[in-house]
Simulated assay, not measured.
Amino acid sequence: MSAFTSVPIVDISGLRSTDDHEWSRVATELGTAAREVGFFYVSGTGVDEARFARLLAATREFFALPVEEKMRSYIGLSRCHRGYVPVGEEGVENGVPDLKEAFDTALDLPADDPDYLAGNPMLGPNTWPELPGFAEAVTDYYQAVLEVGHLLLRAFAVALGEDPDTFTRHAAKTPSQLRLVHYPYDPNAVDALGIGAHTDYECFTLLKPTAPGLEVLNGAGEWIDVPPVPGTFVVNVGDLLELWTNGAFIATSHRVRKVVEERYSFPLFFNVDYDTEVKPLPQFASPDGEDRPPLRAGEHLFAQTAQSFAYLRRRIESGELVLPEGSLRLNQFGQQALQGVE
């Protein structure tokens, strides 16, 4: 990864083209951005801005509710990690609670889904507050952005010279999460962390923020601002693409700082199916055979999540919850791990 000082913009409208040359051109551009930066904007997604406006309005309405009302949807009441995340629930950097609140959703499965009934910790029905139009606005946005994620997943395979379905064949029923994140106005938060440095646990993230604050770590160990750009999503490489490519794509360490103004952020963490085994593709395997051990996509997501959320850490400490065998500690991917940066 280079010592970049800005983040490129890639127009992906060509991924909806029937022209193979145009498709390949966009995939190549995405591959270059993923290798050299690992963080980039995408325009031309086809996601209607009106969808985002409805999502933002519904999100504002929810977070404006009294805390006791929001806590009716507390994530700790869910069996599959869905619902309201109060301020102080998360702390991904040095155990310092993040200065934000959130609402977590994902693929909304029925209550009789077999994986949910079998106790899968990340698959199941969403938790919805009793707020008219909230579930509809969130679901509509989720489905639209998830479709963009499928296009990108296919394009990344082409960019790597692989069969276009190399990754998408593993994306039929994914624990891809959409988070609605609220950073409250805090006039005393100058140069304070809103969320600690971390990589994302999935393949990649599609993010739509409403205000500045996001920073990404470059190859020289410098933090680079990634401000909102109208009409785009921010995309960053996650842990699983780093593992699949054995570091050709580096998961990008990022954080939120200087959150003085009120800020909303909407990351969709695009994942593959829970039981997918992820290990370096043959073209990226080390000649000496000393590759990182494989991970199961959903188990990695769950293990990292369980180490980040207070309600899950309490269950681990009490012995009620046991992490999957081979689970990694936090921050084992990306420039943060390579450079030992905190």
Rank of each mutant, 00 (worst) to 15 (best):
D108L: 09
G38L: 06
V37H: 03
V85C: 09
P114A: 08
P125H: 02
T59I: 15
R35P: 06
L15E: 11
F52W: 02
T105V: 00
G46E: 09
F103C: 05
E29A: 15
Y84W: 11
E29L: 15
D108Y: 13
D108R: 11
S24Y: 14
L109C: 02
G44N: 05
F63W: 06
A53G: 04
A111V: 04
R79P: 06
D104W: 06
P86V: 02
V47L: 08
R54V: 05
G76I: 03
M122C: 10
F103E: 04
V87P: 05
P114C: 12
V87W: 04
P121H: 07
G31M: 10
Y74T: 15
T59L: 14
G119Y: 05
T32I: 12
E93F: 08
T28R: 10
D104Q: 11
L117W: 05
R35E: 12
F63G: 11
Y74H: 13
R54L: 14
N120S: 06
R16A: 07
A50S: 04
A53Q: 11
T59P: 15
G44K: 08
L30H: 12
R54N: 14
V42G: 11
D115G: 13
C80W: 01
N94K: 07
R82M: 00
E29F: 15
M122W: 06
A33H: 13
A50W: 03
N126E: 03
K70D: 06
R35Q: 02
P97M: 09
Y84P: 08
S43P: 14
W23E: 04
G83V: 02
Y116I: 01
E29S: 15
V67Y: 07
G91K: 03
F63D: 04
Y74R: 15
R51V: 05
F62H: 14
N94L: 04
L117V: 02
W128H: 05
Y74N: 15
D113N: 05
E69H: 15
G83D: 01
S17A: 00
P110W: 06
W23M: 03
L65Q: 12
T127I: 03
C80I: 00
G88V: 05
G38P: 12
E29W: 15
M71F: 09
E90P: 12
P125I: 00
L109H: 09
R54I: 08
T28N: 11
D48T: 00
V42Y: 12
D48Y: 09
G76C: 08
E36N: 08
G88M: 04
R72A: 12
E68R: 14
P86Y: 05
E49G: 09
E68F: 10
L123H: 02
S73A: 13
A50P: 01
L30Y: 10
T127S: 03
P114W: 05
R25W: 03
E22S: 01
F40Y: 11
P121Q: 02
T105N: 03
D115M: 09
M71P: 05
G44Y: 05
R60W: 01
F63A: 13
G95D: 04
A64C: 07
S78T: 12
